[in-house]
Simulated assay, not measured.
Amino acid sequence: MTHHDGGELQEPRDDRPPPQKQPVFNLPFIIVAVLGFMIAIQIGSAYLMSDTTYEAFLFTFGFIPARYTIPLAQQGLEWLWTPVTYSFLHGGVEHILFNGLWLMAFGAPVARRIGTTRFILFWVISSAISAFGHAALDWSSITVLIGASGVVSALMGAACRFAFPPRGQRYHPSFGHLLPRQGIVQALTNKTVLIFTIAWLAGNALIAVGFPLFGDVGGEVAWDAHIFGFFFGFLFFGLFDPKVASGEKAASID
């Protein structure tokens, strides 16, 4: 619309700033760093190592359950770091792509919520819990466990405590990490959380009986590591979360 001012037609001014475009991938730095680290390891192991070197690399940084049946004094120090380092190794492009996509989906909101330091601590502990949960079913196994699937499963469990709000609330990537943390019982009575958890457990049950649906593609799937990781994240997320639970006095947002 135009208006008349002193005999001259002028277009109205719009002083509002142009809308800002939201980036397609707005990931926390720690998620980008972990993804970059895993990709660098994959490229190095796939293209810069001989078969012999790669086998030694897996022995040094992969998780082997049978390692813990041998007295620690009779072996090197690999037992000390492999419960964590295995989570950064992957068996191929499909494996790292799958875990990377789930890491972005569930790791990003958790990282935004608990911060970098707590996220690193969560990663270390959930990685070890997933590994030893897997080993608990067969301590004598010499199969090398690699992949971030256990940690990603723990992040899924953690996200179930806040990223699926009860009816009447809405999740949005820009503020979803600020939603109140639901209690364990409250989360289990949340229809969305319950359906997601049942579907996820059913998928792993199918993997356990021989149907490779998702997870550690390219090799035997450590479905047990997924389950231990998920329940660790779901049950113990409150220990890492500085935000108060739903129903309590709202925490300040910094």
Score class of each variant (00 low, 15 high):
31 I>C: 02
61 F>Q: 10
96 I>Q: 09
180 P>M: 00
45 S>H: 04
71 P>F: 09
160 C>W: 05
165 P>K: 02
10 Q>D: 11
123 W>D: 01
196 F>R: 00
78 E>R: 13
86 Y>N: 10
163 A>S: 07
243 K>V: 02
31 I>R: 12
109 P>K: 05
79 W>Y: 14
194 L>A: 15
47 Y>D: 12
9 L>F: 11
210 G>S: 03
174 S>T: 13
76 G>R: 03
45 S>R: 15
200 W>F: 15
155 L>H: 05
158 A>T: 00
110 V>C: 02
123 W>P: 06
113 R>Q: 07
96 I>D: 03
164 F>H: 06
46 A>F: 06
200 W>L: 12
53 T>N: 12
214 F>K: 09
126 S>F: 05
41 I>V: 14
30 I>M: 10
205 A>H: 05
202 A>V: 14
1 M>V: 13
163 A>Y: 10
77 L>C: 00
82 T>V: 11
46 A>L: 07
5 D>G: 09
113 R>G: 00
112 R>N: 03
52 T>C: 04
106 F>V: 11
175 F>L: 02
193 V>D: 05
240 F>K: 01
143 T>L: 07
157 G>M: 06
155 L>T: 09
50 S>R: 05
1 M>K: 15
91 G>C: 02
105 A>L: 15
2 T>C: 07
36 G>E: 07
13 R>C: 04
113 R>D: 01
200 W>G: 05
37 F>I: 12
212 P>E: 01
132 F>G: 07
94 E>H: 11
142 I>V: 15
187 A>P: 04
89 L>S: 10
158 A>N: 11
21 K>S: 13
108 A>K: 03
139 W>M: 13
128 A>M: 11
205 A>I: 04
117 T>K: 14
82 T>Q: 02
87 S>Y: 06
130 S>R: 04
181 R>I: 03
169 Q>W: 13
169 Q>F: 12
80 L>S: 09
70 I>S: 06
248 E>I: 02
187 A>R: 12
52 T>F: 12
94 E>P: 08
42 Q>I: 02
167 R>T: 14
99 N>K: 01
250 A>C: 06
35 L>Y: 08
158 A>F: 10
75 Q>Y: 08
84 V>A: 09
55 E>I: 09
27 L>A: 11
254 D>N: 15
1 M>I: 14
230 F>N: 08
190 N>F: 01
106 F>G: 04
202 A>F: 11
136 A>I: 12
144 V>D: 00
207 I>V: 15
98 F>T: 04
245 A>Y: 03
177 H>R: 10
78 E>Q: 14
93 V>A: 14
216 D>Y: 01
